[in-house]
Nucleic acid binder design. Structure first.
Lengths: 355, 355
DNA sequence: AATCTTTCCTTAAACGGTTAAGTAAATAAA
DNA sequence: TTTATTTACTTAACCGTTTAAGGAAAGATT
């Protein structure tokens, strides 16, 4: 069976191509009888319109792009889920692109979008994205862009984030109140707004608690797991090592636990650990890990919903549509005052919506 | 600046549309001088060909679809990574669709592909996919399909799997050798080949070790976390509860640990636990979790590479191209003989390639 | 009876590329 | 010199839709 087109249906039913097209799209100037006949026939021959012909003509692709640094951690997995749910509901298609934390790839990915391949873009930038002319250029072409999580401040459009500053503040305060007096802050970038906000919250909390905020306590990690292991091991092996540590990205938690195991540091007695993470296993780690959980699914959903809103009404000003969805602090054993971790275990499963 | 097309370039350079098209694609019957001029100009005006016009004419979309049940666990995240890496290298685009374990959605997703939206499909079927006419129909249209992980046996095409039978066998043997004599096997489907193979390996191992394989030890879990919690709790609270448990899907590990914690079962002393999982946190769980790790990234990569091979040479017979990539058994504390777990900890980090 | 509407359908021109077929000029072969 | 070949381009059809514009027939209005 060859591919069935509108032209074929027209021939078969003795009607014109235009009539078929309009009948299928419920055009106003087609008789009810004809509509029924056409639709019934189209169904019977299993007609599926060619999306590319339609996209070409309408200059709309019904497709969005999602550009992510990676999809290894659970944040982006969940975000994709949220995006996909909304897209499927709206009848949109989702192209996925990974920049693998490389600015070069991000640039070439966005360059391709100039072609009109997608109607809109959802993105989270790489750690390398300091120069943003490629994004600016796409934006200038009028393609709606919604950032989520890792936003680019220089582009004037909607940004879906969580309350990173407050989260950094909350988690630091929590560690201070749990008795830490030297807290290391692990980050992966000095430029990403998300990292800057979290560390700003951290610094503010230190100041508010009359503590000194030392630059040497800010530790810049890389994308290389072994390097990170070595670095963290070095930090935690110092005489004046931190007794509290904040990992601002998920993947570092495994490394920290591994280092502590290997050099014999007891969590939380010797060192307290908290992590920005969406891992479902946090609760069953040894010891269970205190986390700041981002609303990943919600953020993806919100970002997608907003993008579609922008695609549907062209006059929407995305600039004014940014959303901040609060994170949750899950206090568990890894950050708890010495002594009570085992006994008061149950009580410690505190869940606090950060505000 | 309006959108720049081949037509515009032709006008600007005083050449015909055909010349521009052929010059840009390095056609053989265009003069070197002209090619240079055209390419230089195209670059200078930042020309990007309209992919939909090209797709329409060439009847090729340079796009593949990835259809997954979900993207919550690390298996599919890593698989996507593998797929995307190959696709990006080959200049293909990746549409992602989630069936959310619903046959209905899977059907409607595949139905859309009849339109020629994608050149090929990579898929992992839902737990509900027993009827497969929708896949058959797509396959009959000549769209290459490569299954990975959750394959559909009835469709005669390439399947990228891991050695599920051997993995089930290996992990069961391991538990038996660690002293278990009643092993529960948690599964999510009685139909999915992947589940059947793993459980077949489990049963074979029991028989080879002269043990009885009881149907009551096969536990069918659902997609609902709370239901699973209740079910597993019930099983583990019985008087004649298992002293070994195999979770054939990743997400169940958290539930099992939670149940054990809640009803006071000590892993591995009271019960030994192993899980088919790619979680990076397995090593730092409490206790560290013995896992069968699937080569997720590799599987994604291989599946994608194979699909592109099929797309490039039309005469390739996908039927003969299935690949089995072995899993790895990581033996950790959760499945270890009583007593030695803490002391011989280091030695226990055994990693065995299953063959 | 003549004109105006309305209804329902058709014609044909897009959309932006690709490509088979044709052609004019320059070069080579007879 | 005539004919064949090569080179470098153009013309025009085509991919499958959408849609503005037009038109014939029937019914309504004057």
């Amino acid at each position: 069976m060859s591919i069935i087109t509108i032209k074929q249906i027209a021939r078969d039913l003795g009607l014109s191509i235009a009539t078929i097209s309009k009948a299928l799209r419920d055009g106003h100037d087609i008789g009810e009888e004809t509509k029924k006949r056409v639709r019934a026939y189209a169904l019977s021959v299993n007609y599926t319109p060619n999306p590319y012909a339609s996209s070409l003509r309408k200059r709309k692709s019904k497709t969005i792009a999602v550009v992510l640094p990676e999809v290894t951690d659970s944040f982006f997995s969940k975000a994709i889920n949220g995006i996909e749910v909304v897209a499927q509901m709206k009848g949109y298609h989702v192209l996925i692109y990974l920049s693998h934390e490389s600015l070069l790839r991000e640039q070439s990915i966005l360059k391709d979008f100039q072609s009109g391949r997608v109607d809109g873009v959802l993105m989270s930038i790489t750690t390398e994205t300091e120069c943003n002319s490629h994004i600016q250029e796409l934006h200038a072409r009028g393609i709606p862009i919604v950032f989520f999580d890792r936003v680019c401040n220089e582009i004037d459009t909607a940004k879906i984030t969580t309350n990173d500053f407050e989260s950094g503040y909350a988690v630091t305060s929590h560690l201070l109140e749990s008795g830490c007096n030297k807290i290391g802050f692990l980050t992966i970038s000095n430029c990403l707004p998300i990292c800057m906000k979290r560390s700003a919250g951290y610094k503010k909390a230190l100041i508010d608690h009359h503590m000194e905020s030392k630059e040497s306590d800010m530790i810049l990690c890389s994308n290389n797991e072994e390097e990170n292991y070595t670095l963290i091991k070095k930090i935690l092996s110092q005489k004046k090592r931190p007794n509290g540590i904040i990992a601002s990205v998920e993947k570092l938690s495994t490394t920290i636990y591994q280092v502590c195991k290997d050099i014999g540091l007891q969590i939380p007695n010797d060192i307290k650990v908290v992590c920005f993470s969406n891992q479902s296993t946090a609760a069953i780690l040894n010891p269970s890990l205190t986390t700041v959980t981002q609303p990943a699914f919600e953020m993806g959903k919100t970002a997608a919903a907003l993008l579609f809103k922008a695609l549907e009404k062209t006059n929407l000003d995305l600039t004014k549509e940014s959303v901040i969805i609060p994170s949750t602090l899950h206090i568990r054993e890894s950050s708890v005052l010495a002594g009570i971790s085992k006994t008061k275990n149950k009580l410690l499963q505190k869940e606090i919506l950060i505000s």
